[in-house]
Simulated scan of single mutants.
Amino acid sequence: MKKLSWINKLMFSFNIVLTVLTFLAYVLPFLAPNFFPILSVLTLILPLFLIINGLFFLYWLFQLKRQMIISGIVLIVGITFINKFYKFSSNPTPEENKDFIVMSYNVRLFNLFNWLPQEHIGDTIRQFINDQNPDILCIQEYSKTAKVDLRVYKHKFIFMKGDNIKSGQAIFSKYPIVNEGNIEFPESNNLIVFADLRKGKDTIRVYNMHLQSIKISPDVNEIQDNVDSISQHKSQMMLKRISLAFKKQQLQAEILKNHKKNCHYPMIICGDMNNSAFSYVYRSIKGNLSDCFEEAGNGFGETYNFKYYPARIDYIFADKKMIVKSFDNFPSFKNSDHYPILTRLMME
């Protein structure tokens, strides 16, 4: 430190603080949010920590300073986290007749209340689904009121709830549904639906989940404006709300984890988790399943329209008995606050 200029001493101080926060974020996926709900917020911005650590590494490297070792260690330890955030191009796998396509999409009630200025969004989404032609389609925030025609699917399971505004989850399938059900959560409007599908000689369990929202604005400028303008009391209320959402997500993830223990079929879990791939909730639900983005995705894999930040909060997990042949997200298809995600699978 003595040989550093005052600017570098200041930069190194920031570097040390960032290192501590990053390692703390590394540990948090293994700790239940019930114990550290506010600290769990760090998992949402772990990718940002990794990027800044990378910049610090380059900063010290160009000056040939040994301080680069700290950021280098942080990046080496976090290599598995980097793969969850950014995926380099995967080699294309040839399509086969045994392949089947799964799509998951939070459609935000098909824009029922005109959150977006575009007209006929329901029809646009329907056409997109027809073009992609998934064999299994999982929809979150589904609305019957929007009257989107998906009759191309002979088999479906839809579960709706709510008093004045009914919404829910839907599973549409080209394969027969031999069993179906729903999992409701205590003190929450969120839920999970599931269906057992008969595909040839195989039976596949499909879960369609929508976990508790943390209700953060998709525009970071709005968040900053709110932080600048609201009182300390309201800031504390916002942190309390986020903490409560993380606690609810933990309970919901544990309910799903226990439910799937009784399933002996190969399974797929789709949906809107409302949390990052660096969280306890993600780790709990994924278990020993494959994250289809990690297996065959490209780039950042963002699934939520969060301005300036590639947020990935929607997932498709597949059983290890399935080969993940491709994964796509569609950030240019802005007809909801989420983007559709799609994977091509094959039973081994």
Rank of each mutant, 00 (worst) to 15 (best):
K166Y: 01
D135Q: 06
G200P: 10
C138H: 06
L197I: 14
R108Y: 01
R108E: 08
E180K: 12
N111I: 05
P117F: 06
I192C: 13
K201Y: 15
M160R: 13
I129G: 05
K174P: 08
L197M: 03
I129A: 07
Q132I: 14
L116T: 01
F194H: 15
E141A: 02
N164C: 11
V152G: 13
A170Y: 01
I129K: 03
V178F: 06
F194P: 01
I165V: 13
S167F: 11
F172R: 00
H120V: 09
H120E: 13
T145A: 15
E180H: 08
Q118T: 05
N208K: 11
N111A: 11
I139V: 03
A195I: 05
F185I: 12
K199L: 15
I204S: 14
A146C: 08
V107P: 04
Y153K: 04
N189M: 07
S167Y: 10
A170L: 02
R108F: 03
F128S: 10
G168Y: 13
N130E: 12
K201E: 15
G122Y: 14
H155T: 09
M160S: 07
Y175P: 04
Y207C: 08
R151P: 03
T124L: 10
D131G: 08
G122N: 09
L191D: 15
E187W: 14
Q140L: 03
D196G: 00
H210S: 08
C138D: 01
K174G: 13
D149I: 02
I165F: 09
I121D: 01
R205H: 05
A195F: 10
R198E: 13
I192P: 03
S143V: 05
S188H: 04
K174S: 13
G200S: 12
F110V: 00
V178W: 06
V206Q: 04
I121S: 02
K174Q: 14
Y153N: 10
H210F: 05
Q169L: 07
K174M: 11
G181S: 07
A195P: 02
H155P: 07
N190A: 06
Y207D: 07
A195E: 10
G168R: 11
L137I: 06
K166P: 11
A170I: 01
Y153P: 02
R126P: 09
F185T: 06
A170M: 05
A146R: 01
N179G: 07
N208H: 01
Q169H: 00
E187V: 12
L137A: 04
I183A: 02
D202M: 06
T145S: 14
L109D: 10
L197G: 02
F113C: 08
F194M: 12
L150R: 02
R198S: 14
F157C: 08
K161C: 12
P186D: 08
L150C: 01
V152P: 04
C138N: 01
N106G: 05
I121Y: 00
K201N: 15
N114Q: 04
H120N: 14
K154P: 13
N179H: 10
K199C: 15
N182M: 10
V148Q: 00
I129C: 04
N164I: 13
D135H: 08
